[in-house]
Amino acid sequence: MIQGDDTPDLDKGLNQRQLVHLMYGLFAVGILTAGIFGAAILAAVVLAYLKRGDMVGTVYAGHIDWIIRTFWWGLLWLVLSGIASMIFIGFITGLVAMIWIIYRIAKGWLAHCSGETPLPGL
Rank of each mutant, 00 (worst) to 15 (best):
G35P: 14
I68N: 00
F37W: 12
A61T: 05
A61V: 04
I41H: 03
G57Y: 09
A48I: 06
W66K: 05
A61L: 06
A43S: 09
A40Q: 04
V45T: 03
G35F: 13
A43V: 13
L50D: 11
G62K: 11
G35N: 12
L42Q: 05
Y60L: 06
I36C: 04
M55I: 12
M55W: 13
L50W: 08
Y49M: 11
L47M: 13
R69T: 10
L47E: 05
G35L: 11
I64L: 03
V56N: 08
V59L: 07
I64N: 02
I67H: 05
V45W: 00
V56M: 14
I36D: 00
Y60K: 01
V56S: 07
V56D: 07
D65G: 08
V59C: 01
G35A: 10
Y60E: 11
V56H: 14
I67P: 00
G53Y: 11
W66H: 14
A43Y: 06
G38T: 09
I36R: 01
W66G: 04
I67D: 00
F37C: 10
F37D: 03
A61E: 15
L50F: 07
V59M: 05
A40L: 04
A39M: 11
H63D: 07
T58H: 04
A44W: 02
L47V: 08
A61F: 15
I41G: 02
A44Q: 02
D54K: 15
D65R: 13
A61N: 07
G57N: 13
R69K: 12
V56L: 14
I64Q: 02
A48N: 02
G53E: 15
L50A: 13
V45K: 01
R69S: 09
A44E: 04
D54M: 11
D54W: 09
L47W: 06
A61W: 14
I41C: 03
I68A: 01
H63L: 07
